[in-house]
Amino acid sequence: MARVSLTSQDGFADCDLPFSCGSVQISAQDAGQITAIMPFKGYAMTVATALKDSVGMTLPTVGTVIENNGTEFFWNAQGQWFAFANHAETAKLTAALQGMAAVSDQSDGWLILALSGTGVRDVLARLCPLDFDDFPLGRVARTEFAHIACTLIPGQTGCRIMVPRSYARAAVDITTEAMKSVAAQALL
């Protein structure tokens, strides 16, 4: 048959990342494989055991994220969790959940932006309606980011924003505008 090969394209191609302005930086982050996990009814305990046995941790409670050896589980919607993991761990958890949960590959559907720096709160205040004083490490939120439905995970000096792939350019453009605005206001 045919000898054709496809090349992979970065979701943030042409977005000029990383970008730094004032005291804030924005960059793309590789989350590895992204997998959606939706346990079937009555399988909560079975899923917990299977995940514990396969990747060493269970699904976190609503609105929270947990991490173990580079693999992260976080709540994403009612009855729905996402996993960030490398290929090997993803294969393990996918196999372990066979027949217990609806599992789907979301690796190409979402992109992760990382915002960091001392002025990150001021930038986020212009993009997202969350109260970041009430949003400590370990929490996760489905929220709006510049009119884009996203998942937001706080970090030590900023946060990660998971946006649908199609919004990559829009998200980066409006975030860099907010960064420039905050930087300009700091000089007033």
């Binding site: 959606a36 939706m38 079937f40 009814k41 009555g42 009612q78 009855g79 729905q80 609806a102 789907s104 590959d105 979301q106 690796s107 190409d108 559907g109 979402w110 649908p164 792939r165 199609s166």
Partner: peptide, 19 residues
């Protein structure tokens, strides 16, 4: 799913962006 037939064991997720 959530309001009319919560008894049904069915799960859905958008894969529009994935493919």
């Amino acid at each position: 799913s959530q309001c009319l037939w919560p008894e049904l064991d069915v799960h859905f997720i958008s894969v529009t962006e994935q493919w």
